[in-house]
Nucleic acid binder design. Structure first.
Lengths: 231, 231
DNA sequence: CCGGAAGTGGATAGGGCATTCCAGTTCGGT
DNA sequence: ACCGAACTGGAATGCCCTATCCACTTCCGG
């Protein structure tokens, strides 16, 4: 699971042992905090949780995006793996449905990841690469499920993102007061994905528009309060 | 539309004319700000938008909940009215579907209202009364649509709240980058609500649990940052 | 075991937000 | 026109957040 992989993961000279230790503590703390509070958690709160000075945070992770990338690398791996598993399923519909359920469960278990799936982080190369990799798998999966006549013909890959957004909404709103509510919503969506379609749908959003939306959201989380606009 | 109705709307002696004018400006400003930024907008930003001193805000609306109640009174009226319209429809399924579309459109047009529909504000009597009134209408509507054999039998009133939460998630995530994405999600959900059901669903959340969730959310928006928990 | 590079945390600047206080202003009945 | 009550805005307090700086500490190769 690449526990020691760092963003650049490259030639940059290795950290001194104590620095490496602190780095790990920071990532672990961030994992906890993001899971609990979502991506809106502050850098400061992560530093506190890690028991480390604020400066240490910023030296190691100058931007929240880098921290997010480090924290969710393994979740993204699991996400990509889940697509692989789905592709291995001899029944493509069963594979797709299982994949969607699995991923939504991951969102329910980690508020931070719920957010991550509705955003895009252009500078987090490794993360986005995994996402694209998963995307390609999903496209295949969709094609096969349609070919098998189990998935409605007008289903698009963008619909998957919409599912993530809707699920994030339910998960965030219900919290642990109704921890299983998302399952019902996801089941409902899955049923309407089945072929034959019960009716036409409004157009799927343009991929570019959706990308813009995801970008906007990540910027809102990772570089917040602008000077405040005036009338 | 009760433009001049105030929360208590009662015997409390009338405001001085200048105070009343400021009050109106505050409510108008809050309407604008909440619509644009959702309920997380700060009291301070509303005061700025209104061009009024901060103290004036707090004297008139000591809690954000009261401001929210004043601002969304008319939206809640429209919400209740929409149920009435739906009940007048000779085709109960058509009525229900139209209602859901209408309300989700209201959410898309007003981020603040999108939030309001996923929260509950115990002290805002008028608001909650309207909500309950709408709720009763919805229960009837559901009954009729089931009786007409058009709505799946396991549909519950709580599902409507889940729709609001999911829709809020989509609306918030897409913003104006993909302003119509919600329509597709809502259409999908509607199709899966149709009878006959395509399969069983996980249980609907308990009404009490859902209430707790909605309460939690409103508290998060109206009385935020607790001291920060420690490890 | 020693010295410099690497690393550390606290202090600090700069900004936002909620909330309270108060000296000055405006309203409106007489 | 007057005067007290009602009302006003800004200043002050206290907290949290991002980001940077810097004097001090720790590591580790020679």
């Amino acid at each position: 699971m690449n526990l020691h992989a760092r963003p650049g993961d490259g030639p940059a000279q290795p950290l001194r042992s104590d620095a490496e230790r602190n780095r790990a503590r920071i990532v672990a703390a961030a994992r906890t905090v993001f899971r609990r509070d979502g991506l809106n958690a502050s850098m400061a709160s992560v530093a506190r949780e890690a028991g480390v000075g604020i400066a240490t945070m910023f030296r190691r992770f100058p931007t929240k995006e880098e921290l997010v990338a480090a924290v969710f690398a393994d979740r993204m791996d699991a996400y990509a793996d889940a697509v692989g598993t789905a592709l291995d399923d001899p029944d493509p519909w069963h594979g797709l449905a299982g994949f969607i359920e699995t991923v939504c469960a991951m969102q329910a278990a980690d508020y931070g990841f719920a957010d991550v799936l509705t955003m895009t982080f252009p500078t987090a190369k490794a993360l986005e690469e995994r996402r694209n990799q998963a995307y390609e798998g999903v496209v295949q999966l969709i094609g096969r499920a349609k070919a098998a006549g189990r998935l409605r013909e007008d289903f698009t890959p963008e619909d998957l993102v919409l599912v993530h957004m809707a699920n994030a909404g339910v998960v965030n709103a219900t919290g642990d007061a109704a921890p299983d509510a998302w399952k019902r919503v996801v089941a409902l969506m899955l049923q309407s994905f089945q072929a034959p379609a019960r009716g036409p749908l409004p157009d799927s959003p343009e991929p570019r528009a959706l990308y813009k939306a995801m970008l906007r959201a990540s910027r809102a989380s990772c570089a917040p309060p602008e000077p405040e606009r005036k009338g």
